[in-house]
């Protein structure tokens, strides 16, 4: 009905489809407090956006989705900037490496495949873990026992060199850990168009041992800046950032997230989390199905130097 032309994706899409997708994913991200990039990129691929453009545009949208959260935590002084900068140094390297890898894979004609396979692995493991956690919690609640988790255990990581003091996080740990973590999440941002909060937050708590009060704010700091760097690097090197697409998704997501946050404040259900796990596993299964069914045409064309 109301078609809009996406200049970088070079296709026309119904404007309300994009707003609706932005709204739905925004709602989920408001509900669960995560960015939503890990659902949006596959959905864009499903509606026919070329996977590289889906990744480049989504990483741009994550900037919009995380910046206000970062500012809010900053105002409440819940950001460990020193830790954030160390994470970001790794994240910048990681996203540069990711964009470099992205270009090589595109030249080899394998970028679509690598994006899809990465998503199958990532969504598969996240979905399974969430499902297991959810089922375990429901069972535990039924049996009436509660388990208090141990926040931080001393492990092999404490033997690493280059120790640094992080005053806000009350930590004295090797800088290798946050740099490495930032690097990995940076690669994910460039290659898959995700902020990586779903992975960064638990890793900061369990691996780095940060106090949870500063984890969300610090992760949002890293996500905002790494996705900004990835957006610029993608724009300069791969030309896969469609600002019209990102803008429409953001518009939908901002509205959806408001409702999600509101509903999330009222609801507190393990079943809800189980439902998100099902959605994640469903998207994963659809991606896998597309990889294993024989395509209608085995041949495809690509122009050298273009996507």
């Amino acid at each position: 009905m109301f078609q809009i032309y996406l200049p970088i994706a070079e296709m026309s899409v119904d404007i309300f489809l994009l707003l609706g997708m932005g709204g739905a994913v925004g709602f989920l991200s408001g509900l669960f407090g995560v960015g939503g990039g890990f659902l949006m990129t596959p959905l864009l691929i499903f509606i026919g956006v070329p996977p590289p453009v889906a990744v480049g545009s989504e990483v741009n949208q994550v900037v919009a989705a995380s910046v206000s959260g970062f500012m809010a935590h900053w105002r409440r002084r819940q950001v460990d900037f020193k830790m954030g900068v160390v994470l970001l140094s790794g994240g910048t390297l990681g996203s540069a490496f990711g964009v470099w890898l992205f270009e090589i894979l595109r030249e080899l004609g394998q970028i679509n495949l690598v994006i899809s396979i990465s998503y199958v692995f990532m969504l598969g493991s996240i979905g399974t873990l969430m499902m297991m956690e959810s089922v375990r919690t429901i069972l535990r609640r039924r049996s009436g026992t509660t388990a208090r988790r141990k926040a931080h255990v001393h492990n092999w990581a404490h033997g690493l060199p280059f120790k640094m003091r992080f005053r806000t996080s009350r930590l004295y740990i090797s800088a290798i850990l946050p740099v490495g973590l930032g690097f990995f999440v940076g690669v994910l941002a460039s290659l898959m168009g995700v902020g990586g909060g779903f992975l960064l937050v638990p890793a900061m708590i369990y691996l780095l041992g940060m106090p949870v009060s500063v984890v969300i704010g610090t992760s949002l700091f890293q996500i905002t800046f790494v996705t900004a760097v990835a957006t610029i690097l993608h724009s300069a090197n791969t030309q896969t950032v469609d600002v019209v697409l990102a803008g429409l998704l953001t518009l939908g997501a901002v509205i959806g997230a408001q409702f999600g946050t509101r509903v999330g404040a009222e609801l507190r259900g393990e079943e809800l989390r189980g439902l998100l796990a099902l959605v994640v596993l469903g998207v994963c299964a659809t991606l896998l199905w597309r990889l294993i069914t024989e395509p209608s045409n085995l041949f495809s064309l690509s122009v050298v130097g273009l996507n």
């Binding site: 509900l31 988790r149 638990p202 969300i216």
Partner: peptide, 12 residues
């Protein structure tokens, strides 16, 4: 406001 992992949510 972070509800993806119940372990993390509970700890917070």
């Amino acid at each position: 406001d972070f509800r993806q992992w119940s372990g993390v949510e509970e700890m917070m």
